[in-house]
């Protein structure tokens, strides 16, 4: 599986190189192939995704569902921040709450943490195993289960389908 990861990393890095240079001149291709090969040999082992999982179309479908959901939540988060910034007396009730997640893999947890950070009023400050600590700008509920449901929103289910 090691060689598989390196090759997969190489192809991915090459794709990014092609997008960034946006040319198929042979000099650019040779340099790109060399540079991305070095990068793949150095970092390929740390690739957090199992290459085989990438060939499952169901995961790609849920990724496509995830993107608009995420964009909409991100937009709502910004309206939320805008309202708080512009309101005269700062309406803040901040606190750091703990939350459990049922996601198994590191990459899924990373994406959950990132999604939480970009959604309204919440920011992940620490992950320990399956516990996330979240800075919440407006603590709406002190009950752990209800709080977890509000914070996770639609993301945990979607991410479980994509990565786990």
């Amino acid at each position: 599986m090691r060689a598989g990861r390196v090759i997969f990393y190489w192809l991915g890095a090459m794709a990014v190189w092609l997008l960034l240079t946006w040319t198929v001149h042979w000099q650019s291709l040779v340099v790109g192939a060399l540079v991305t090969l070095i990068a793949a040999l150095a970092f390929g082992q740390q690739l957090p995704v199992m290459p085989l999982r990438l060939f499952n179309p169901r995961r790609w479908f849920w990724l496509l569902v995830y993107i608009p959901v995420f964009a909409w939540q991100c937009f709502k988060a910004n309206l939320d921040v805008a309202m708080r910034v512009l309101s005269p007396g700062l309406q803040l009730r901040p606190g750091i709450v703990r939350m459990k997640t049922s996601l198994k893999t590191d990459i899924a947890r990373t994406f959950l943490a990132n999604s939480i950070t970009l959604t309204p009023g919440t920011m992940t400050v620490e992950i320990k195993e399956d516990v996330l600590y979240i800075h919440w700008i407006d603590v709406q509920s002190e009950d752990p289960e209800k709080a977890a449901r509000i914070i996770k929103g639609p993301f945990e289910k979607l991410l479980a389908r994509i990565f786990d």
Binding site: C74, A77, N78, D80, V81, A82, R84, V85, L86, L90, L92, P94, I96, T117, L118, G121, M123, V125, H135, I137
Partner: peptide, 22 residues
């Protein structure tokens, strides 16, 4: 708006929220 939040919010953590999202 994010920069305004950076100025108005009371502590580092709230400011980080405004800065990141916006």
């Amino acid at each position: 708006l994010g920069c305004l939040g950076l100025v108005r919010f009371p502590d580092l953590y709230n400011r980080m929220q405004a800065a990141t999202k916006s």
